[in-house]
Amino acid sequence: MPDLTIKQEIDARGSACPGPLMELIRGLKSASVGEVVAVLSNDPGSNKDIPEWVQKIGYELVAAETTGNQTRFVVRKTK
């Protein structure tokens, strides 16, 4: 089983595009390969933007959990 310990939880609620994505990138920059970072966003744009970015950059979207109007994206730095 891969390690699912969250290295960093980022609360980007209240921030609009491109805020949550940039906060996630900041978190992943400081993470090591294999580590997992989570970002919580209530910007509807993040639902498109973050999964698309993760796919393009080639990281792994471990989970996207939506509760009410907010989503927590869990991303692994795979390289």
């Binding site: 209240g14 921030s15 609009a16 595009c17 805020g19 940039m22 990138i25 900041r26 910007d43």
Partner: peptide, 20 residues
């Protein structure tokens, strides 16, 4: 709308982009 949505001043967005 910008206030409601939490759109940051453009210069902050630029500073973050420069930092990252």
């Amino acid at each position: 709308a910008m206030q409601r949505m939490g759109v940051k001043p453009w210069i902050e967005t630029l500073k973050t982009a420069k930092e990252l």
